[in-house]
Design a protein around this nucleic acid. Sequence first.
DNA 1: AAAACAATATCTACAATGTAGAGGAAATTA
DNA 2: TAATTTCCTCTACATTGTAGATATTGTTTT
Lengths: 109, 109
Amino acid sequence: MSKEKFLGEFEQFVLLAILKLGESAYGSTIRQLLAEIIGRDVTIGALYTTLDRLEAKGLLESKIGEATAERGGRAKKYFKVTAQGQSALKRSKQALSSLWQGLTLKVLD
Amino acid sequence: MSKEKFLGEFEQFVLLAILKLGESAYGSTIRQLLAEIIGRDVTIGALYTTLDRLEAKGLLESKIGEATAERGGRAKKYFKVTAQGQSALKRSKQALSSLWQGLTLKVLD
DNA sequence: AAAACAATATCTACAATGTAGAGGAAATTA
DNA sequence: TAATTTCCTCTACATTGTAGATATTGTTTT
């Protein structure tokens, strides 16, 4: 089926963050980790838009958590990288590899 | 002055390719090297559009070569990464670093 | 139970980047 | 000067990036 599309860079970051977060990946935790990884802030709107798109493409799946919050608030939506998401990421990594090596060797430091 | 914008991934690849090509960076050589690096074809239109945009942003500069061709044809347009281009790339590399390391550690192989 | 509050997600819009392909320019050669 | 070759320009549209305002859904307060 797949068109073997390539992931955008931000998409890759998002996927990675979710992978790292494991069970606790939802909006604000993702956003937080992302900020650390990327080194700058990410607005909530930017994040959710990307999350939705990745889910639409089948690279992520989500489930609404139970509303067991302690201090009120809407239920969290937990995300998880699908198998398809993993392979997409794996492919990206391939291409990234040459970029990374190139940049590393090519002075720039 | 700078808005400190981030480079797109394809833009990074293009910049790197030009850096690697040195004196001989023009349309078709860039396209060729890019194909190797990225692992898939890049249409000529896609390439020039990006080249132009990078130049407009001051990350690249170009000069038309002398028409000393051997078998006819229009003069080549040679590209070169500016100092500004180098630093932009350097900044991108920073962010890429965490992505690359994350992907490397996070199994996926 | 209504009002205020808190935590989270959805929607809408627009900007930037990615991607293609048809077509135009300039030089060489027949 | 017409044909051929090599290369670049233009136009258009798709995808991804980014933001902010707003809606939902619980809890706590009054």
